[in-house]
Amino acid sequence: MKIGCPTEIKPQEYRVGLTPNAVRELVGHGHAALIQRGAGLGAGFEDADYLAAGAKIAADAAEVFATSDMIVKVKEPQAAERALLREGQILFTYLHLAPDPDQTRDLLASGATCIAYETVTDARGGLPLLAPMSEVAGRLAPQMGAWTLQKANGGRGVLMGGVPGVGPANVVVIGGGVVGTFAARVAAGMGAEVTVLDRSLPRLRYLDDVFGGMFSTRYASAGATADLVAGADMVIGAVLVPGAAAPKLVSRAQLGDMKHGAVLVDVAIDQGGCFETSRATTHDDPVYEVDGIRHYCVANMPGAVPRTSTIALGNATLPFVLALADKGWAAACREDTHLLQGLNIHAGRLTNAPVGLALGIDAITPDDALEL
């Protein structure tokens, strides 16, 4: 199979879908790899590194899309890239379709088979291709929030750890999954007073057992959430409903109860955001203000540390890329029900029910798609 990897064109996105080590593995399995010129530069990989691994270098994205059987990317294809997809081609990348009707429509029209990193599952019920980027985003969230809290950046002027005689910042993390856990660990490590909210009592017990007094936990009732958000200097939104739009857990009305200059960091923005006032921003212009509350809603946070993110993502995706290349998408998905859960679109049909519910589109099951 010929696997193509184009340069990412989303603003301020420096990650790349394949590392030279991944190319070496693919070539070792008898496949061909085509990398767009300069695709890896943002993550510190030269074209010479890919050539040494056995890849060929393409002049532009059009060549990559036109000659490859499978496209491996990081972020969802932008409009110009979607126009290059063709019937029968495999697209393997993050998609986040639920809040993006334009992308969904274009991918359905392309006839391509689209497998989303974020809905591939594992035997423990986890999301193994989302986890590495969730770990990165979780670690980044308090760092970005602390920067936004600085007065020069429009924030309250609060230091995360305080100083002797002055209390630390009050940080609330909504969601105790991978993002929330790493965000809480880093915020607590910076000296902040941290509370994690979640609706899963087993998860709250786990966090208490493992992290002890590092941070507090509370059940995420509407009342508890409202009270804690009102007293927070920083709120980190870390809620995920796999494949579906994120629930809106903080309303615009609640902003009026918050401290002026407090910060909302919405890590769920890829799925539409978990604050009513969230809208996607970029690393070029990451912060905006609503009713005196600073919002940091960058939709590709891990892109800020592209080398770490690229290597971490590549470690997770490589086994699936090899399976798809070695066996073809249908055989690979028949053998691996967890990979099958990543199938979002095939032959002009939507195959993810939560996306269908969010966008009002009829969906078939992934198993039905295998029979098409």
Rank of each mutant, 00 (worst) to 15 (best):
T121R: 15
G314I: 02
D326L: 05
Y14A: 09
I361F: 06
H29G: 14
G303H: 06
R156P: 00
R15A: 05
V23S: 01
V265N: 06
K151D: 15
V241A: 14
T277I: 02
G189S: 08
V265G: 04
V194H: 02
D47M: 07
A43R: 03
A52S: 14
T277F: 06
R139I: 06
K2I: 14
G272A: 10
D69Q: 15
C333K: 01
A262H: 02
G165I: 10
L26H: 00
A62M: 05
A187Q: 01
K151H: 15
Q150F: 14
T119E: 07
F320V: 09
L339H: 01
A52G: 04
I361Y: 08
T104Q: 03
F211I: 00
A187V: 00
G243P: 06
A22S: 15
L18Q: 01
Q36Y: 13
G138Y: 04
G231D: 12
L159T: 07
D106P: 07
V239F: 03
E289R: 10
L372Q: 13
R185S: 04
R279W: 04
V267P: 03
A59R: 13
Y117S: 03
K2W: 08
Q341T: 13
A79C: 00
E335C: 00
L340S: 04
A262Y: 03
P77H: 12
Y219V: 14
G348H: 13
G30Q: 05
R218W: 07
K248M: 09
G213S: 08
L340D: 04
P164M: 13
G42F: 12
A116S: 13
K10Q: 11
G44W: 08
L350A: 03
G191P: 03
K259T: 12
T282S: 15
L34E: 01
T337A: 08
S134Y: 09
L26C: 11
V305Q: 09
G231M: 10
R294L: 15
E276L: 02
L51I: 11
Q103V: 09
L201Y: 10
L240N: 06
T351E: 03
T225A: 10
G223V: 06
E63I: 09
L107N: 05
